[in-house]
Design a protein around this nucleic acid. Structure first.
Ligand code: ZN
Ligand code: ZN
Ligand code: ZN
Ligand code: ZN
Lengths: 137, 137
DNA sequence: TGTAATTGCTCTAGTGACTAGAGGTTCAAG
DNA sequence: CTTGAACCTCTAGTCACTAGAGCAATTACA
């Protein structure tokens, strides 16, 4: 039996976050002490660890909800889990590509100014003007 | 004199977003028609175009506020503008690196399963267990 | 001039995934 | 038995919008 603070330090999820996860139905409400404090059984450790790691990998709460449902049914096919992971991988790739484009554009922009004052600053000019950009964004 | 809808289509910023920008003080409240509708002078075009492009490049509203203040003082040194842009560039680089790590990790994870059922799914196992990961996240 | 379609107005609430704070209660150690 | 840490609930704030309700003004066309 853990208090919420002990659970928190064991899995590395902050106390308010654990309560938040309970409030959105991601983890079950635990039993309470006589004084109404949360008391967790050891089983919650696995679930919360899973949630923590999946969040660290960037998966959304909704995706994690689905994965947890799957996890609870060992006889189901695991295609759907693969699908969710692959979808997230695609999302990541898209995001990375876009950020790289922005980075390139901004690198170009920031290397352009040989003025000292705002009036002729090429950086400010380029920030306000898409026409000199090489890519869409 | 533009209506908010005309301004919106000219600069590619949605009508509610323009009103939102006004509400947070990013653009000045324009004059109103007799019927209380917003009527914009042409000067707002530049400002809103600047905002739009800077947002597209990923800059925060706060950063844009600072840049707009600079923009209004042509005699000031432009170091601060460079600083803001460079800071954003750093943020971008950090974000990209992190997403690339996640992507690598997830690629590894998703290529690991030769099971058909959830019970022995390596993907689900790896999602819940950081100990097999090659990087921090 | 009549009327209908479009555009505009304000206000509130919702998004995602938490985080911060107020104001109070319970627990564990000494 | 006292003290201080940890816990409780509830509300509101974060960021940059977006959606919707319910109504008013404008514009286009007949
Ligand atoms: Zn400059
Ligand atoms: Zn551009
Ligand atoms: Zn599998
Ligand atoms: Zn990991």
């Amino acid at each position: 039996m853990f208090s919420i603070g002990q659970l928190s330090s064991k899995v590395g999820v902050k106390v308010p976050t654990i309560r938040y996860y309970e409030s959105i139905g991601l983890i079950d409400p635990p039993h309470r002490s006589e004084g109404n404090q949360r008391r967790y059984e050891p089983e919650v450790l696995d679930r919360l660890t899973f949630i923590r790691h999946a969040r660290d990998l960037g998966l959304s709460i909704d995706a994690i909800k689905d994965l947890l449902i799957l996890n609870a049914n060992p006889d189901m096919p695991c295609d759907e889990a693969h699908l969710i992971a692959n979808q997230h991988l695609k999302d990541l790739a898209r995001k990375i590509t876009q950020l790289q484009q922005l980075s390139l554009e901004l690198t170009r922009i920031t290397q352009n100014c040989d003025s000292d004052t705002v009036g002729h600053c090429k950086v400010l000019e380029a920030l306000g003007d898409h026409s000199t950009c090489k890519s869409d964004h």
